[in-house]
């Protein structure tokens, strides 16, 4: 019960921020900053340093000695706070960035562009399934209109320019409708978190406190 009470008081303290920033909420902010920092350091040490480097190297040196190399290069990060040698810390960053920029190219292309386009240009007429045909046309139309809004300011071709004017407008409207959807979902996400905390306060904490007070036992 003590644990629940501590968690509940911290929850209440953090909630007081809605009313006004106060000493309790500031205390909690600083507490969480310290805890998160500590959490990050400990987990990096345990899950990456120990697990991916230290233990493999010390238990089976012959198979894993190569891991010393990236670890030493990675240690160049320690130069970061010192102005004169700061550039050294860019070396490990450059290695990760270079490799993953290269690796990502083809995969971004295939997953985000090619497969997305495949999904868009599905056959616009599906025999015997009017509903599906209609859906495909809607998606195709939406993507074209919005992309035309994104990519073209003005088209220097009289016939196309007129068409572009319309697709642009449809594109904007379409986007607004989808932002509405996103807003609706965002409300649900945030409300869910609030409910989670309030349930904790009312049922798991106050509810239990009342039970204890009325002799219901721990």
């Amino acid at each position: 019960m003590l644990t629940t009470t501590i968690a509940a008081l911290l929850t209440l303290g953090a909630m007081s921020l809605v009313w006004k920033e106060n000493i309790v909420s500031r205390f909690i902010e600083h507490l969480i900053l310290g805890i998160s920092l500590g959490y990050g350091v400990v987990l990096t040490y345990r899950q990456i340093f120990l697990r991916l480097f230290w233990v493999p190297v010390t238990t089976d040196f012959a198979a894993n000695w190569i891991l010393i190399l990236p670890t030493l290069i990675g240690a160049l990060w320690l130069a970061q706070p010192f102005q004169k040698v700061r550039w050294l810390s860019l070396i490990p960053l450059a290695m990760v960035l270079g490799a993953f920029s290269g690796l990502g190219l083809e995969r971004i292309m295939s997953s985000y562009i090619i497969e997305a386009l495949e999904g868009t240009v599905k056959s616009l007429y599906v025999a015997g399934d009017l509903q599906k045909s209609f859906d495909h046309v809607v998606i195709w139309l939406g993507v074209v209109c919005i992309l035309s809004y994104f990519y073209f300011r003005r088209i220097h071709n009289p016939a196309l320019e007129k068409a572009h004017e319309y697709t642009r407008i449809v594109g904007i409207w379409w986007l607004m409708a989808s932002f509405g959807v996103s807003f609706g979902f965002t409300v649900m996400a945030r409300a869910a978190l609030l409910i989670y905390r309030i349930q904790f306060l009312t049922q798991d904490w106050i509810g239990e406190l009342i039970k204890i007070a009325s002799g219901g036992g721990m």
Partner: peptide, 16 residues
């Protein structure tokens, strides 16, 4: 989460 959900529907439609 509900926040990422609207974006996720497109992968459903693309059969990913």
């Amino acid at each position: 989460t509900a926040i990422s959900a609207p974006e996720a529907y497109q992968f459903l439609q693309a059969e990913q």
